[in-house]
Nucleic acid binder design. Structure first.
Ligand SMILES: NC(=O)c1ccc[n+]([C@@H]2O[C@H](COP(=O)([O-])OP(=O)(O)OC[C@H]3O[C@@H](n4cnc5c(N)ncnc54)[C@H](O)[C@@H]3O)[C@@H](O)[C@H]2O)c1
Ligand SMILES: NC(=O)c1ccc[n+]([C@@H]2O[C@H](COP(=O)([O-])OP(=O)(O)OC[C@H]3O[C@@H](n4cnc5c(N)ncnc54)[C@H](O)[C@@H]3O)[C@@H](O)[C@H]2O)c1
Lengths: 211, 211
DNA sequence: ATTTTTATGTGCAAAAATTCACAAAACCCA
DNA sequence: TGGGTTTTGTGAATTTTTGCACATAAAAAT
Protein backbone atom coordinates (compact mmCIF):
# COMPACT_ATOMS: atom_id res chain seq x y z
CA UNK A 1 0.00 0.00 0.00
CA UNK A 2 1.98 2.95 1.25
CA UNK A 3 -0.81 5.39 0.41
CA UNK A 4 -2.64 6.94 3.32
CA UNK A 5 -6.21 6.23 2.31
CA UNK A 6 -9.20 7.13 4.40
CA UNK A 7 -10.99 3.97 5.43
CA UNK A 8 -14.74 4.03 4.63
CA UNK A 9 -16.89 3.58 7.68
CA UNK A 10 -18.86 0.69 6.19
CA UNK A 11 -15.58 -1.15 5.69
CA UNK A 12 -14.99 -1.38 9.42
CA UNK A 13 -18.50 -2.67 10.01
CA UNK A 14 -18.03 -5.32 7.37
CA UNK A 15 -14.68 -6.46 8.73
CA UNK A 16 -16.45 -7.37 11.96
CA UNK A 17 -19.07 -9.14 9.88
CA UNK A 18 -16.47 -11.17 7.99
CA UNK A 19 -14.94 -12.41 11.22
CA UNK A 20 -18.10 -14.40 12.05
CA UNK A 21 -17.85 -17.01 9.28
CA UNK A 22 -14.06 -16.97 9.63
CA UNK A 23 -14.38 -18.02 13.24
CA UNK A 24 -16.73 -20.80 12.23
CA UNK A 25 -14.30 -21.98 9.55
CA UNK A 26 -11.38 -21.84 11.93
CA UNK A 27 -13.28 -23.98 14.40
CA UNK A 28 -14.28 -26.51 11.78
CA UNK A 29 -10.67 -26.69 10.62
CA UNK A 30 -11.10 -25.32 7.09
CA UNK A 31 -7.69 -23.85 6.21
CA UNK A 32 -8.48 -21.67 3.18
CA UNK A 33 -11.38 -19.44 2.18
CA UNK A 34 -12.12 -17.33 -0.89
CA UNK A 35 -13.46 -13.81 -1.04
CA UNK A 36 -16.43 -15.27 -2.87
CA UNK A 37 -17.27 -17.62 -0.02
CA UNK A 38 -16.96 -14.88 2.60
CA UNK A 39 -19.07 -12.58 0.46
CA UNK A 40 -21.73 -15.21 0.02
CA UNK A 41 -21.96 -15.95 3.72
CA UNK A 42 -22.13 -12.27 4.62
CA UNK A 43 -24.43 -11.18 1.83
CA UNK A 44 -22.00 -8.80 0.12
CA UNK A 45 -20.10 -8.54 -3.16
CA UNK A 46 -16.80 -10.49 -3.45
CA UNK A 47 -14.95 -7.47 -4.82
CA UNK A 48 -16.13 -5.59 -1.76
CA UNK A 49 -14.51 -8.15 0.50
CA UNK A 50 -11.21 -7.92 -1.35
CA UNK A 51 -11.27 -4.15 -1.41
CA UNK A 52 -12.11 -3.91 2.26
CA UNK A 53 -9.16 -6.12 3.11
CA UNK A 54 -6.87 -4.35 0.66
CA UNK A 55 -7.15 -1.15 2.69
CA UNK A 56 -5.02 -2.81 5.32
CA UNK A 57 -2.62 -4.98 3.34
CA UNK A 58 -2.31 -8.01 1.11
CA UNK A 59 -3.57 -10.92 3.08
CA UNK A 60 -4.47 -13.36 0.32
CA UNK A 61 -2.63 -15.51 -2.19
CA UNK A 62 -3.67 -15.09 -5.82
CA UNK A 63 -5.22 -18.18 -7.31
CA UNK A 64 -5.60 -19.64 -3.84
CA UNK A 65 -7.54 -17.51 -1.41
CA UNK A 66 -7.09 -16.44 2.18
CA UNK A 67 -5.64 -18.49 5.01
CA UNK A 68 -8.51 -18.59 7.48
CA UNK A 69 -6.37 -18.40 10.61
CA UNK A 70 -4.10 -15.65 9.31
CA UNK A 71 -6.94 -13.56 8.00
CA UNK A 72 -8.87 -13.82 11.22
CA UNK A 73 -5.80 -12.78 13.18
CA UNK A 74 -5.28 -9.81 10.89
CA UNK A 75 -8.89 -8.68 11.13
CA UNK A 76 -8.77 -8.94 14.89
CA UNK A 77 -5.59 -6.91 14.95
CA UNK A 78 -7.18 -4.25 12.71
CA UNK A 79 -10.33 -4.01 14.80
CA UNK A 80 -8.36 -4.21 18.06
CA UNK A 81 -10.33 -7.23 19.17
CA UNK A 82 -7.11 -9.17 19.71
CA UNK A 83 -7.11 -7.97 23.31
CA UNK A 84 -9.64 -7.77 26.11
CA UNK A 85 -11.69 -4.70 26.93
CA UNK A 86 -13.19 -3.69 30.26
CA UNK A 87 -16.77 -2.47 30.30
CA UNK A 88 -19.44 -1.47 32.76
CA UNK A 89 -23.21 -1.63 32.48
CA UNK A 90 -25.35 1.19 33.81
CA UNK A 91 -28.98 0.23 34.42
CA UNK A 92 -29.36 -3.35 35.57
CA UNK A 93 -32.95 -3.92 34.45
CA UNK A 94 -34.09 -6.62 32.08
CA UNK A 95 -31.83 -5.69 29.21
CA UNK A 96 -28.79 -4.90 31.34
CA UNK A 97 -29.21 -8.25 33.06
CA UNK A 98 -29.50 -10.12 29.78
CA UNK A 99 -26.28 -8.52 28.58
CA UNK A 100 -24.44 -9.24 31.82
CA UNK A 101 -25.50 -12.88 31.73
CA UNK A 102 -24.54 -13.44 28.13
CA UNK A 103 -21.35 -15.49 27.96
CA UNK A 104 -20.66 -14.50 24.37
CA UNK A 105 -19.30 -11.11 25.33
CA UNK A 106 -16.62 -12.56 27.57
CA UNK A 107 -15.72 -15.11 24.91
CA UNK A 108 -15.09 -12.24 22.53
CA UNK A 109 -12.96 -10.37 25.01
CA UNK A 110 -15.54 -7.98 26.40
CA UNK A 111 -15.34 -8.19 30.18
CA UNK A 112 -18.06 -6.64 32.28
CA UNK A 113 -16.24 -5.57 35.41
CA UNK A 114 -18.85 -3.34 37.04
CA UNK A 115 -22.60 -2.85 37.13
CA UNK A 116 -24.43 0.27 38.26
CA UNK A 117 -28.03 1.06 39.09
CA UNK A 118 -29.66 4.06 40.70
CA UNK A 119 -32.39 2.00 42.32
CA UNK A 120 -31.58 1.81 46.06
CA UNK A 121 -33.30 -1.58 46.16
CA UNK A 122 -30.80 -2.94 43.63
CA UNK A 123 -27.59 -1.17 44.61
CA UNK A 124 -25.63 -3.36 47.00
CA UNK A 125 -27.22 -6.56 45.77
CA UNK A 126 -25.24 -9.24 44.04
CA UNK A 127 -26.39 -9.87 40.48
CA UNK A 128 -26.61 -13.48 39.20
CA UNK A 129 -23.80 -12.66 36.78
CA UNK A 130 -21.49 -12.37 39.78
CA UNK A 131 -21.13 -8.59 39.89
CA UNK A 132 -22.18 -6.50 42.85
CA UNK A 133 -24.53 -3.75 41.73
CA UNK A 134 -23.08 -0.37 42.65
CA UNK A 135 -24.82 2.98 43.12
CA UNK A 136 -24.18 5.46 40.32
CA UNK A 137 -22.33 7.73 42.72
CA UNK A 138 -19.49 5.27 42.45
CA UNK A 139 -19.14 5.53 38.67
CA UNK A 140 -16.34 8.07 38.75
CA UNK A 141 -14.39 6.15 41.32
CA UNK A 142 -14.77 2.67 39.85
CA UNK A 143 -14.14 3.70 36.24
CA UNK A 144 -10.75 4.91 37.44
CA UNK A 145 -9.79 2.06 39.75
CA UNK A 146 -11.12 -0.73 37.54
CA UNK A 147 -9.74 0.92 34.39
CA UNK A 148 -13.09 0.72 32.63
CA UNK A 149 -12.85 1.72 28.97
CA UNK A 150 -16.38 1.27 27.62
CA UNK A 151 -19.73 2.17 29.14
CA UNK A 152 -22.94 0.38 28.24
CA UNK A 153 -26.15 2.33 28.91
CA UNK A 154 -29.34 0.37 29.57
CA UNK A 155 -31.29 2.88 31.61
CA UNK A 156 -34.65 4.37 30.66
CA UNK A 157 -34.25 6.93 27.87
CA UNK A 158 -34.92 9.90 30.14
CA UNK A 159 -31.84 9.08 32.20
CA UNK A 160 -29.49 8.06 29.42
CA UNK A 161 -27.94 11.46 28.68
CA UNK A 162 -27.23 12.09 32.34
CA UNK A 163 -25.62 8.70 32.67
CA UNK A 164 -23.56 9.35 29.54
CA UNK A 165 -22.36 12.63 31.04
CA UNK A 166 -21.38 10.85 34.24
CA UNK A 167 -19.45 8.24 32.29
CA UNK A 168 -17.67 10.85 30.16
CA UNK A 169 -16.83 12.89 33.25
CA UNK A 170 -15.23 9.79 34.67
CA UNK A 171 -13.05 9.51 31.58
CA UNK A 172 -14.99 7.03 29.47
CA UNK A 173 -14.50 7.62 25.75
CA UNK A 174 -16.66 4.89 24.24
CA UNK A 175 -20.35 4.31 24.87
CA UNK A 176 -22.75 1.66 23.67
CA UNK A 177 -26.23 3.10 24.16
CA UNK A 178 -29.40 1.00 24.15
CA UNK A 179 -31.78 3.78 25.15
CA UNK A 180 -33.80 5.12 22.21
CA UNK A 181 -32.36 8.62 22.30
CA UNK A 182 -29.48 10.34 20.55
CA UNK A 183 -26.65 10.76 23.07
CA UNK A 184 -24.82 14.08 22.78
CA UNK A 185 -21.11 13.69 23.18
CA UNK A 186 -18.00 15.66 22.23
CA UNK A 187 -15.85 14.56 19.31
CA UNK A 188 -13.46 12.69 21.60
CA UNK A 189 -16.08 10.17 22.73
CA UNK A 190 -17.34 7.46 20.38
CA UNK A 191 -20.99 6.57 20.73
CA UNK A 192 -22.77 3.66 19.11
CA UNK A 193 -26.53 3.40 19.38
CA UNK A 194 -28.48 0.19 19.32
CA UNK A 195 -32.16 0.81 18.77
CA UNK A 196 -34.37 -2.20 18.21
CA UNK A 197 -37.53 -0.27 17.47
CA UNK A 198 -35.71 1.61 14.73
CA UNK A 199 -35.00 -1.76 13.14
CA UNK A 200 -38.60 -2.82 13.57
CA UNK A 201 -39.80 0.34 11.91
CA UNK A 202 -37.55 -0.40 8.97
CA UNK A 203 -38.87 -3.92 8.77
CA UNK A 204 -42.45 -2.78 8.88
CA UNK A 205 -41.91 -0.21 6.14
CA UNK A 206 -40.53 -2.81 3.75
CA UNK A 207 -43.13 -5.38 4.76
CA UNK A 208 -45.94 -2.92 4.20
CA UNK A 209 -44.52 -1.65 0.92
CA UNK A 210 -44.14 -5.13 -0.60
CA UNK A 211 -47.68 -6.19 0.19
CA UNK B 1 -43.34 15.62 -6.59
CA UNK B 2 -45.06 13.41 -9.14
CA UNK B 3 -41.79 11.77 -10.11
CA UNK B 4 -41.34 8.14 -9.16
CA UNK B 5 -38.07 8.35 -7.32
CA UNK B 6 -36.39 5.42 -5.66
CA UNK B 7 -36.21 6.05 -1.95
CA UNK B 8 -32.69 5.66 -0.52
CA UNK B 9 -32.49 3.02 2.16
CA UNK B 10 -30.87 5.39 4.68
CA UNK B 11 -33.83 7.73 4.28
CA UNK B 12 -36.20 5.18 5.77
CA UNK B 13 -33.90 4.59 8.72
CA UNK B 14 -33.69 8.30 9.37
CA UNK B 15 -37.44 8.83 9.18
CA UNK B 16 -37.77 6.48 12.12
CA UNK B 17 -35.03 8.43 13.85
CA UNK B 18 -36.79 11.76 13.30
CA UNK B 19 -39.95 10.44 14.90
CA UNK B 20 -38.25 10.19 18.30
CA UNK B 21 -37.78 13.93 18.96
CA UNK B 22 -41.09 14.62 17.23
CA UNK B 23 -42.86 12.42 19.76
CA UNK B 24 -41.11 14.25 22.58
CA UNK B 25 -42.15 17.61 21.14
CA UNK B 26 -45.69 16.48 20.63
CA UNK B 27 -45.89 15.41 24.25
CA UNK B 28 -44.41 18.66 25.52
CA UNK B 29 -46.90 20.55 23.38
CA UNK B 30 -44.49 22.32 21.02
CA UNK B 31 -46.53 23.00 17.88
CA UNK B 32 -43.82 23.77 15.29
CA UNK B 33 -40.34 22.42 14.59
CA UNK B 34 -37.69 23.32 12.02
CA UNK B 35 -35.57 20.96 9.95
CA UNK B 36 -32.57 22.45 11.72
CA UNK B 37 -33.89 21.48 15.13
CA UNK B 38 -34.71 17.95 14.04
CA UNK B 39 -31.31 17.64 12.40
CA UNK B 40 -29.56 18.86 15.48
CA UNK B 41 -31.36 16.43 17.76
CA UNK B 42 -30.70 13.51 15.45
CA UNK B 43 -27.16 14.37 14.53
CA UNK B 44 -27.71 14.88 10.80
CA UNK B 45 -27.64 17.71 8.26
CA UNK B 46 -30.76 19.95 8.02
CA UNK B 47 -30.85 19.63 4.22
CA UNK B 48 -30.89 15.91 4.71
CA UNK B 49 -34.00 16.13 6.83
CA UNK B 50 -35.78 18.24 4.26
CA UNK B 51 -34.72 16.03 1.40
CA UNK B 52 -35.77 12.87 3.22
CA UNK B 53 -39.22 14.31 3.82
CA UNK B 54 -39.47 15.71 0.30
CA UNK B 55 -39.39 12.17 -1.13
CA UNK B 56 -42.88 11.74 0.24
CA UNK B 57 -44.47 15.13 -0.14
CA UNK B 58 -44.44 18.74 1.04
CA UNK B 59 -45.10 18.67 4.75
CA UNK B 60 -43.63 21.98 5.82
CA UNK B 61 -44.48 25.64 5.48
CA UNK B 62 -41.73 27.89 4.11
CA UNK B 63 -40.51 30.44 6.54
CA UNK B 64 -42.25 28.59 9.36
CA UNK B 65 -41.28 24.95 9.72
CA UNK B 66 -43.16 21.73 10.24
CA UNK B 67 -46.27 21.19 12.31
CA UNK B 68 -45.12 18.63 14.85
CA UNK B 69 -48.36 16.69 15.02
CA UNK B 70 -48.93 16.64 11.26
CA UNK B 71 -45.38 15.64 10.48
CA UNK B 72 -45.40 12.84 13.02
CA UNK B 73 -48.64 11.53 11.60
CA UNK B 74 -47.21 11.65 8.08
CA UNK B 75 -44.02 9.84 9.09
CA UNK B 76 -46.02 7.16 10.85
CA UNK B 77 -48.16 6.73 7.79
CA UNK B 78 -45.08 6.43 5.58
CA UNK B 79 -43.41 3.89 7.83
CA UNK B 80 -46.68 2.04 8.42
CA UNK B 81 -46.36 2.48 12.15
CA UNK B 82 -49.81 4.06 12.30
CA UNK B 83 -51.28 0.62 12.91
CA UNK B 84 -50.46 -2.29 15.19
CA UNK B 85 -48.36 -5.26 14.22
CA UNK B 86 -48.45 -8.78 15.60
CA UNK B 87 -45.18 -10.47 16.42
CA UNK B 88 -43.88 -13.62 18.02
CA UNK B 89 -40.63 -14.30 19.85
CA UNK B 90 -38.76 -17.53 19.31
CA UNK B 91 -36.27 -18.36 22.08
CA UNK B 92 -37.44 -17.20 25.49
CA UNK B 93 -34.04 -16.94 27.15
CA UNK B 94 -32.64 -13.82 28.76
CA UNK B 95 -32.89 -11.61 25.72
CA UNK B 96 -36.25 -12.93 24.55
CA UNK B 97 -37.61 -12.33 28.05
CA UNK B 98 -36.26 -8.80 28.20
CA UNK B 99 -37.94 -8.01 24.90
CA UNK B 100 -41.24 -9.58 25.95
CA UNK B 101 -41.26 -7.61 29.20
CA UNK B 102 -40.46 -4.28 27.62
CA UNK B 103 -43.56 -2.11 27.56
CA UNK B 104 -42.15 0.19 24.93
CA UNK B 105 -42.89 -2.19 22.10
CA UNK B 106 -46.57 -2.36 22.87
CA UNK B 107 -46.70 1.41 23.23
CA UNK B 108 -45.33 1.68 19.72
CA UNK B 109 -47.84 -0.76 18.32
CA UNK B 110 -45.73 -3.90 18.34
CA UNK B 111 -47.79 -6.60 20.03
CA UNK B 112 -46.13 -9.82 21.07
CA UNK B 113 -48.90 -12.36 20.73
CA UNK B 114 -46.93 -15.61 21.00
CA UNK B 115 -43.69 -16.94 22.50
CA UNK B 116 -41.92 -20.13 21.49
CA UNK B 117 -39.12 -22.16 23.01
CA UNK B 118 -37.76 -25.60 22.18
CA UNK B 119 -36.81 -26.32 25.78
CA UNK B 120 -39.36 -28.82 27.14
CA UNK B 121 -38.85 -27.34 30.60
CA UNK B 122 -40.06 -23.96 29.32
CA UNK B 123 -42.74 -24.93 26.85
CA UNK B 124 -46.12 -24.94 28.56
CA UNK B 125 -45.03 -22.52 31.27
CA UNK B 126 -46.52 -19.08 31.60
CA UNK B 127 -44.00 -16.30 31.11
CA UNK B 128 -44.12 -13.22 33.41
CA UNK B 129 -45.07 -11.15 30.37
CA UNK B 130 -48.37 -13.02 30.33
CA UNK B 131 -47.75 -15.25 27.32
CA UNK B 132 -47.80 -19.01 27.51
CA UNK B 133 -44.58 -20.40 26.08
CA UNK B 134 -45.36 -22.73 23.19
CA UNK B 135 -43.27 -25.54 21.70
CA UNK B 136 -41.81 -24.72 18.31
CA UNK B 137 -43.92 -27.43 16.72
CA UNK B 138 -46.80 -25.03 17.10
CA UNK B 139 -45.20 -22.21 15.11
CA UNK B 140 -46.92 -23.05 11.85
CA UNK B 141 -50.29 -23.36 13.46
CA UNK B 142 -50.16 -20.27 15.67
CA UNK B 143 -48.67 -17.99 13.03
CA UNK B 144 -51.76 -18.74 10.99
CA UNK B 145 -54.42 -18.55 13.68
CA UNK B 146 -52.95 -15.54 15.49
CA UNK B 147 -52.16 -13.77 12.20
CA UNK B 148 -48.55 -13.18 13.21
CA UNK B 149 -46.71 -10.93 10.77
CA UNK B 150 -43.23 -10.55 12.24
CA UNK B 151 -40.93 -13.11 13.84
CA UNK B 152 -38.27 -12.19 16.37
CA UNK B 153 -35.42 -14.68 16.73
CA UNK B 154 -33.58 -14.85 20.05
CA UNK B 155 -32.30 -18.41 19.96
CA UNK B 156 -28.63 -19.43 20.06
CA UNK B 157 -26.96 -18.72 16.70
CA UNK B 158 -26.75 -22.39 15.73
CA UNK B 159 -30.53 -22.68 15.76
CA UNK B 160 -31.40 -19.34 14.21
CA UNK B 161 -31.45 -20.39 10.55
CA UNK B 162 -33.66 -23.38 11.30
CA UNK B 163 -36.05 -21.21 13.25
CA UNK B 164 -36.08 -18.67 10.41
CA UNK B 165 -36.96 -21.45 7.97
CA UNK B 166 -39.80 -22.58 10.24
CA UNK B 167 -41.13 -19.04 10.45
CA UNK B 168 -40.93 -18.52 6.69
CA UNK B 169 -42.60 -21.88 6.07
CA UNK B 170 -45.42 -20.69 8.25
CA UNK B 171 -45.81 -17.62 6.06
CA UNK B 172 -43.81 -15.03 7.98
CA UNK B 173 -42.25 -12.43 5.70
CA UNK B 174 -40.42 -10.21 8.17
CA UNK B 175 -37.78 -11.30 10.68
CA UNK B 176 -35.87 -9.43 13.34
CA UNK B 177 -32.85 -11.55 14.15
CA UNK B 178 -30.73 -11.11 17.27
CA UNK B 179 -28.50 -14.15 16.74
CA UNK B 180 -25.04 -13.23 15.43
CA UNK B 181 -25.39 -15.00 12.11
CA UNK B 182 -26.51 -13.94 8.65
CA UNK B 183 -29.97 -15.39 8.04
CA UNK B 184 -30.53 -16.68 4.52
CA UNK B 185 -33.91 -15.78 3.18
CA UNK B 186 -35.53 -15.44 -0.24
CA UNK B 187 -36.20 -12.01 -1.70
CA UNK B 188 -39.78 -12.04 -0.47
CA UNK B 189 -38.80 -12.06 3.23
CA UNK B 190 -37.31 -8.98 4.87
CA UNK B 191 -34.65 -9.67 7.48
CA UNK B 192 -33.14 -7.15 9.86
CA UNK B 193 -30.20 -8.18 11.98
CA UNK B 194 -29.35 -6.72 15.36
CA UNK B 195 -25.85 -7.60 16.42
CA UNK B 196 -24.51 -5.95 19.55
CA UNK B 197 -21.00 -7.34 19.27
CA UNK B 198 -20.72 -5.92 15.77
CA UNK B 199 -21.43 -2.52 17.31
CA UNK B 200 -18.90 -3.14 20.05
CA UNK B 201 -16.25 -4.06 17.51
CA UNK B 202 -16.92 -0.81 15.73
CA UNK B 203 -16.62 1.10 18.95
CA UNK B 204 -13.40 -0.60 19.87
CA UNK B 205 -11.84 0.12 16.47
CA UNK B 206 -12.50 3.83 16.75
CA UNK B 207 -11.48 3.93 20.41
CA UNK B 208 -8.22 2.17 19.67
CA UNK B 209 -7.48 4.27 16.59
CA UNK B 210 -7.99 7.58 18.37
CA UNK B 211 -5.69 6.74 21.26
C1' DA C 1 8.18 -26.49 -19.76
C1' DT C 2 3.99 -24.68 -21.12
C1' DT C 3 -0.77 -24.09 -20.80
C1' DT C 4 -4.86 -23.82 -18.18
C1' DT C 5 -7.22 -22.72 -14.15
C1' DT C 6 -8.15 -20.14 -10.27
C1' DA C 7 -8.65 -16.28 -7.33
C1' DT C 8 -6.44 -12.03 -5.66
C1' DG C 9 -5.53 -6.85 -5.93
C1' DT C 10 -6.87 -2.61 -8.05
C1' DG C 11 -7.82 1.27 -11.62
C1' DC C 12 -11.74 3.18 -13.09
C1' DA C 13 -16.53 4.00 -13.98
C1' DA C 14 -21.00 3.87 -12.20
C1' DA C 15 -24.18 4.42 -8.59
C1' DA C 16 -25.66 6.16 -4.36
C1' DA C 17 -25.85 9.40 -0.90
C1' DT C 18 -24.88 13.77 0.99
C1' DT C 19 -24.35 18.65 1.12
C1' DC C 20 -24.44 23.18 -0.85
C1' DA C 21 -26.70 27.08 -2.27
C1' DC C 22 -30.41 29.56 -3.65
C1' DA C 23 -35.13 30.50 -5.46
C1' DA C 24 -39.71 30.26 -3.65
C1' DA C 25 -43.06 30.98 -0.33
C1' DA C 26 -44.89 32.46 3.97
C1' DC C 27 -44.81 35.47 7.73
C1' DC C 28 -43.87 39.90 10.32
C1' DC C 29 -43.90 44.57 11.02
C1' DA C 30 -43.99 49.16 9.95
C1' DT D 1 -48.40 47.75 0.66
C1' DG D 2 -43.66 46.57 0.65
C1' DG D 3 -39.25 45.43 2.40
C1' DG D 4 -36.97 42.36 5.58
C1' DT D 5 -36.67 37.83 7.66
C1' DT D 6 -37.18 33.13 7.98
C1' DT D 7 -37.19 28.45 6.56
C1' DT D 8 -38.74 25.24 3.17
C1' DG D 9 -38.03 22.54 -1.27
C1' DT D 10 -34.86 21.25 -4.70
C1' DG D 11 -31.41 21.35 -8.77
C1' DA D 12 -26.67 20.87 -9.05
C1' DA D 13 -22.20 19.90 -7.23
C1' DT D 14 -19.65 17.08 -4.34
C1' DT D 15 -18.40 13.20 -1.79
C1' DT D 16 -18.66 8.53 -0.73
C1' DT D 17 -19.32 3.87 -1.77
C1' DT D 18 -19.81 0.09 -4.74
C1' DG D 19 -18.82 -3.11 -8.40
C1' DC D 20 -16.96 -4.24 -12.85
C1' DA D 21 -13.29 -5.98 -15.38
C1' DC D 22 -8.90 -7.26 -16.01
C1' DA D 23 -3.87 -7.56 -15.12
C1' DT D 24 -1.30 -10.28 -11.99
C1' DA D 25 0.37 -14.16 -9.59
C1' DA D 26 0.23 -18.77 -7.90
C1' DA D 27 -0.90 -23.55 -8.52
C1' DA D 28 -2.44 -27.46 -11.21
C1' DA D 29 -2.61 -29.97 -15.28
C1' DT D 30 -0.80 -31.54 -19.45
N1 LIG E 1 -35.65 -4.61 27.27
C1 LIG E 1 -35.69 -4.47 25.97
O1 LIG E 1 -35.99 -5.41 25.26
C2 LIG E 1 -35.36 -3.20 25.32
C3 LIG E 1 -35.55 -3.09 23.96
C4 LIG E 1 -35.24 -1.88 23.33
C5 LIG E 1 -34.76 -0.85 24.07
N2 LIG E 1 -34.59 -0.97 25.39
C6 LIG E 1 -34.10 0.16 26.14
O2 LIG E 1 -33.12 -0.24 27.05
C7 LIG E 1 -33.29 0.48 28.25
C8 LIG E 1 -33.48 -0.47 29.39
O3 LIG E 1 -34.56 -1.32 29.14
P1 LIG E 1 -35.03 -2.38 30.21
O4 LIG E 1 -36.10 -3.16 29.59
O5 LIG E 1 -33.86 -3.09 30.76
O6 LIG E 1 -35.66 -1.43 31.32
P2 LIG E 1 -35.79 -1.73 32.89
O7 LIG E 1 -36.78 -0.78 33.41
O8 LIG E 1 -35.97 -3.17 33.10
O9 LIG E 1 -34.35 -1.35 33.44
C9 LIG E 1 -33.88 -0.05 33.60
C10 LIG E 1 -32.93 -0.03 34.78
O10 LIG E 1 -32.26 1.20 34.83
C11 LIG E 1 -32.20 1.63 36.19
N3 LIG E 1 -32.03 3.06 36.22
C12 LIG E 1 -32.97 4.03 36.11
N4 LIG E 1 -32.39 5.25 36.16
C13 LIG E 1 -31.07 5.05 36.32
C14 LIG E 1 -29.96 5.91 36.47
N5 LIG E 1 -30.10 7.24 36.40
N6 LIG E 1 -28.75 5.38 36.64
C15 LIG E 1 -28.60 4.04 36.68
N7 LIG E 1 -29.61 3.17 36.56
C16 LIG E 1 -30.84 3.68 36.38
C17 LIG E 1 -33.49 1.14 36.78
O11 LIG E 1 -33.39 1.04 38.20
C18 LIG E 1 -33.66 -0.22 36.10
O12 LIG E 1 -33.02 -1.23 36.84
C19 LIG E 1 -34.46 1.40 28.02
O13 LIG E 1 -33.99 2.65 27.58
C20 LIG E 1 -35.22 0.74 26.92
O14 LIG E 1 -35.94 1.64 26.15
C21 LIG E 1 -34.89 -2.13 26.03
N1 LIG F 1 -28.41 -11.81 25.93
C1 LIG F 1 -27.73 -10.87 25.28
O1 LIG F 1 -27.37 -9.86 25.83
C2 LIG F 1 -27.36 -11.06 23.87
C3 LIG F 1 -26.53 -10.14 23.28
C4 LIG F 1 -26.18 -10.28 21.95
C5 LIG F 1 -26.67 -11.33 21.25
N2 LIG F 1 -27.47 -12.21 21.83
C6 LIG F 1 -27.95 -13.33 21.05
O2 LIG F 1 -29.31 -13.55 21.26
C7 LIG F 1 -29.58 -14.92 21.30
C8 LIG F 1 -30.22 -15.29 22.62
O3 LIG F 1 -29.41 -14.88 23.69
P1 LIG F 1 -29.81 -15.19 25.18
O4 LIG F 1 -28.82 -14.52 26.03
O5 LIG F 1 -31.24 -14.88 25.40
O6 LIG F 1 -29.58 -16.76 25.24
P2 LIG F 1 -30.31 -17.80 26.21
O7 LIG F 1 -29.49 -19.02 26.19
O8 LIG F 1 -30.64 -17.15 27.49
O9 LIG F 1 -31.68 -18.07 25.46
C9 LIG F 1 -31.81 -18.83 24.30
C10 LIG F 1 -33.18 -19.49 24.34
O10 LIG F 1 -33.45 -20.12 23.10
C11 LIG F 1 -34.06 -21.36 23.34
N3 LIG F 1 -33.84 -22.20 22.17
C12 LIG F 1 -32.77 -22.94 21.83
N4 LIG F 1 -32.96 -23.55 20.67
C13 LIG F 1 -34.19 -23.21 20.24
C14 LIG F 1 -34.95 -23.55 19.10
N5 LIG F 1 -34.48 -24.32 18.13
N6 LIG F 1 -36.20 -23.05 19.01
C15 LIG F 1 -36.69 -22.26 19.96
N7 LIG F 1 -36.00 -21.89 21.06
C16 LIG F 1 -34.77 -22.38 21.19
C17 LIG F 1 -33.40 -21.88 24.59
O11 LIG F 1 -34.20 -22.85 25.22
C18 LIG F 1 -33.29 -20.59 25.39
O12 LIG F 1 -34.43 -20.38 26.18
C19 LIG F 1 -28.26 -15.61 21.07
O13 LIG F 1 -28.11 -15.90 19.71
C20 LIG F 1 -27.26 -14.57 21.47
O14 LIG F 1 -26.04 -14.71 20.80
C21 LIG F 1 -27.84 -12.12 23.14
Amino acid sequence: MGKVTKIPRPTIERLALYSRPLEAFQESGTPIISSEKIADLCGVNPAQVRKDLAYFGEFGVRGVGYDVKDLLREIKRILATDRTWRLCIVGMGNLGSALALNENFRKRGYHFVAAFDSDPAKAGMKHPCGLKIEPIGKIRDLVKTLKIEIGVITTPPGKAQRVADLLMDAGIRAILNFAPIQIRAPECCVVENVDFTLKLENLVYHLHKSS
